[in-house]
Amino acid sequence: MAGAFALVLAAFGSAVVSDNTDANSLRADKYQTISQSYTGPDEAAGGDVDISRDFNRTTQLRQTKAQAGQTQRAQQELVKAVGKEATKQRLNQWVIPVTGYHLTARFGQRSGLWSTTHTGLDFAGPAGTTIVSIAAGTVKSTGYEGAYGNRTVITLNDGTEVWYCHQSKIAVSPGDQVGPGDVIGYTGSTGNVTGPHLHLEVRPGGGGPIDPYAALVEHKVTP
């Protein structure tokens, strides 16, 4: 049993949580969502990540603690399980993708800022904030995708595709295996935006998008 536990923990890996401590206030009006202004790839995409200091420290600490707690619970569940049960737990565990965020545009909203209804959930916050995978899966693609900016697409173990858009820097490559809490990139303002944020899309079976908020709540994670 001890050997099985060790294998389970080794398979899970370690989660990386961003914890910025030097902070000011985050103003929602500074982090608007997608606009009609096309900015193109920003210089941060190939260079060093510059973490903004304009955010609320109390919010950052609360969200970081929540993200860490979710990852810790996943680890505890894996310790209790072996074999197929451990695999099942890992398949189903989700976590929040960023910390220090403020939710702005939500799924299904209509605005002159978009050609159609909004297809994801926007986590606005400091540029350069660490983005982690919300669940276990395989990196399907990475690269610049027009209005979506620098985008990473991860196929979860149940076939669901998750899109992470507008990144300043991508930290994974196609084919990489990731677990919940693994670092995959950093927030930015690439593509059609008016400020740094993570645009998250959830697409079951690689098809049309569904509400990411509802999907997160369904997996016991509330942004």
Rank of each mutant, 00 (worst) to 15 (best):
V132E: 05
T99F: 02
E43Y: 03
K169Q: 14
T130P: 09
T117E: 06
G47H: 07
A74T: 03
N20W: 01
T129W: 01
G69S: 14
Q70Y: 09
R90M: 13
G207F: 02
Q93S: 14
R110Y: 02
R57F: 01
V17Q: 14
W114G: 04
L26Q: 08
D158L: 09
V217G: 07
Q63V: 00
A135R: 04
G205N: 11
K80N: 09
G149H: 01
T194I: 14
S37P: 05
N56Q: 09
Y164D: 08
A68T: 11
A15P: 13
G128Y: 03
V49F: 05
A136N: 07
L78G: 07
Q167A: 14
S37A: 14
G83M: 13
G146C: 07
D158P: 07
T33S: 15
A11T: 09
Q63H: 04
L216V: 06
A44W: 03
G179P: 00
A214D: 10
R27F: 15
G149D: 05
V79R: 12
A124V: 15
D19F: 01
V183N: 12
T64E: 15
G137Y: 03
L103M: 15
I170N: 09
G208D: 08
L7C: 07
A11P: 04
S141F: 02
I170D: 03
T152Y: 00
G179H: 00
N192V: 02
T33K: 13
A11M: 06
S115Q: 12
T194G: 15
P180I: 01
N92L: 15
D158C: 09
T71I: 14
T39S: 13
R203A: 06
I210H: 09
S173D: 08
P196C: 10
E145F: 07
L61N: 12
R27H: 14
V98N: 09
V178M: 09
N24W: 05
R90F: 15
F12L: 10
V178S: 00
A147W: 09
F123V: 09
S18E: 13
D22N: 04
A2L: 10
I34S: 15
V17G: 06
E218H: 14
A124F: 05
G149Y: 00
G188E: 14
N92F: 11
P212V: 03
D29C: 08
G159T: 10
R53H: 06
P41V: 08
R151W: 00
G3W: 00
R62H: 10
